[in-house]
């Protein structure tokens, strides 16, 4: 209720920067627009080609998962939210975006940008919501190394572009340049989104765990548009409609052995 009272203050606080970006967007030169258009067209071409392949890969993945009789998570919806130039707590890495519970946003939703995971919603007000970035010292995210599936947890450090992985052994198979993706454990974040790239592996012979640092792939400081994700909470089992109860009778003797 009181959130309505302070919402105008937030909007006013965000106004100068928003006005500046909108003005600089209006007076951008024709040449620059042309260049940007060219660049975007090229990027779109590349992405389209990738999407073509993705379609085929997705089908293949579903087929293989049916073979494995595995559940498959589908149906992720996104909502584009824009950043407000508001900093609520100076020492925390949180940002405010302009979509709130009126759009169905709720706490604990993952937030992405075009390059990777940004963070999660920690508070949804009617007209805005707060997003805690993955670099906040209070934030931890379950990740796995994309190359070999090694699972661990990445903590925020409080520094703007640094994540810390404190729970990997000194002989863990991690090298700088490895991509860390979300593992989907814990249920907070959907699996398979890029989180960070390992940039430093510091073995500590006197301790059992190594010091590993990573740089987030998302442009945490530059992005102004974020995607808020709804992932389906209950997984859809592929093939359930084709063959009802695939192994209702077979499982019992198996378990009895």
């Amino acid at each position: 209720m009181l959130a309505f009272a302070v919402y105008p203050l937030q909007t006013l606080a965000s106004l100068p920067v928003d006005a500046y970006t909108s003005i600089s967007g209006t007076v951008i030169s024709y040449l620059e627009l042309q260049k940007e258009n060219q660049r975007l067209k090229e990027a779109k071409l590349v992405n389209d080609a990738k999407l073509l392949k993705l379609d085929a890969l997705e089908k293949e993945n579903i087929r293989l998962r049916v073979l494995l009789e595995n559940s498959f998570q589908l149906g992720e919806q996104v909502l584009i939210a824009e950043l407000l130039s508001v900093k609520l707590v100076p020492y925390e890495h949180t940002v405010v975006v302009n979509k709130g519970s009126r759009f169905g946003v709720h706490a604990k939703q993952p937030v992405l940008d075009s390059n990777g995971i940004v963070g999660q919603v920690i508070r949804a007000l009617p007209n805005s919501s707060e997003v805690m970035l993955i670099t906040d010292p209070d934030h931890a995210i379950p990740v796995e190394v994309n190359r070999n599936g090694l699972r661990t947890i990445a903590f925020g450090t409080g520094q703007p572009n640094r994540l810390h992985l404190p729970f990997l052994a000194n002989n863990a198979d991690v090298v700088p340049g490895d991509l860390l993706v979300t593992s989907g454990l814990g249920g907070g974040f959907p699996a398979g989104y890029p989180v960070a790239v390992v940039d430093k592996f510091e073995a500590r012979p006197d301790k059992s765990f190594a010091n590993i640092y990573a740089t987030p792939t998302a442009q945490l400081e530059k992005s102004r548009e974020f995607l808020i994700v709804w992932s389906d909470a209950n997984p859809i089992v592929i093939g359930e409609q084709n063959k009802p109860k695939p192994h209702a009778g077979k499982e019992q003797p198996h378990a009895a052995q």
């Binding site: 006013l12 606080a13 920067v17 130039s85 508001v86 900093k87 100076p90 020492y91």
Partner: peptide, 20 residues
């Protein structure tokens, strides 16, 4: 007080935010 509250959450230069 309203102006102070706006200044409190305003982020004109993100580099200066920790000093706000």
């Amino acid at each position: 007080i309203a102006i102070a509250m706006i200044l409190r959450v305003m982020s004109l230069w993100p580099e200066l935010d920790p000093f706000n």
